[in-house]
Design a protein around this nucleic acid. Structure first.
Lengths: 154, 154
DNA sequence: GGCATATAGTTAGTTATGCAACTAATTCAA
DNA sequence: TTGAATTAGTTGCATAACTAACTATATGCC
């Protein structure tokens, strides 16, 4: 089957490069145009903290799909910009709880509006059912590659 | 509408983080397990050269959705590993044609097999029609964000 | 109690990305 | 035909990614 030899690699290119890169770049550009100095990676961390403040770094790893060194440095940079602060957990001294500052809270509304607007631009002509399929395929892909065989049965 | 306030941002997280990261990590791991020293980014450049050898750096930018500095440095690293060489275009001295070495040609079959196998693992339980929808949505998203309004009419 | 193991987080080193500013070669138009 | 604008590629700087190796704290078992 030499003819569909490249097809899955092709799909890999599509999933990994094109669209996600384009969306990320646009959102970053929209932040910059609005005079906001944060990166999309920093925003993605803040996003989870807006939903639930005071998460541990480990929990942020899980929710943002990043490894620990990545979160360490993102938090370093967010701390430099005074958007979060590390607070030692009172019950377990290994754990840092990451807490939003007022400056970060002030960013929530405007940046989420920009993200929503960016996704609206991105999704022109794409209907809801298709979006649901994309999400379910991605969840499935993620589960296929990260869950143990036993977990996949649930 | 406070309740679906996060939905598009949520989708952004999904598109940009989860699945593509998981696939990339798994493919990189499979390369490493097979004793192959190349990164997936380098592989994605080789992939386009296997389809058509001797592309210019600009053409590689277009096909891999990367900017020029990224390609410059990927080619630098591929050259260090003696997988490609830059050859000046005979007709336009600004242009570098990027040509595969024999070592790179030898990587084609094994790495494409690994990529196909990785995508097969990733896509367990996902049917062809869903894959087509993901691809078409991503093409649409890419076009929405990169084409001029006039081009979008075509 | 004390040692092995596990967990939370950091650091070092390499690769990659994006932007801005740059050089060199080419094209086009006055 | 020469000088402005365009195109191809490179370099510098900042941020971010992954791996491996590390420290510190907590847990669990004897």
């Amino acid at each position: 089957m030499p003819n569909n030899h490249f097809k899955r690699g092709e799909l890999y290119s599509v999933i990994n490069g094109m669209a996600s890169t384009a969306v990320a770049r646009r959102l970053q550009k929209n932040f910059r145009n609005a005079g906001l100095e944060i990166t999309i990676e920093q925003w993605s961390v803040l996003y989870h903290l807006w939903k639930e403040d005071g998460l541990s770094q480990q929990e942020l790893c899980n929710r943002t799909f990043r490894d620990k060194p990545s979160i360490t440095r993102l938090i370093d940079n967010l701390e430099k910009q005074q958007l979060v602060k590390r607070v030692a957990s009172p019950t377990d001294r290994r754990i840092n709880l990451v807490q939003l500052t007022q400056a970060a809270k002030d960013l929530q509304q405007i940046t989420i509006d920009l993200a929503n607007q960016t996704m609206s631009e991105a999704l022109v002509g794409v209907d809801k059912k298709e979006i649901e399929i994309v999400k379910s395929v991605f969840q499935r892909v993620y589960d296929n590659l990260t869950l143990t065989p036993v977990e996949q049965l649930n």
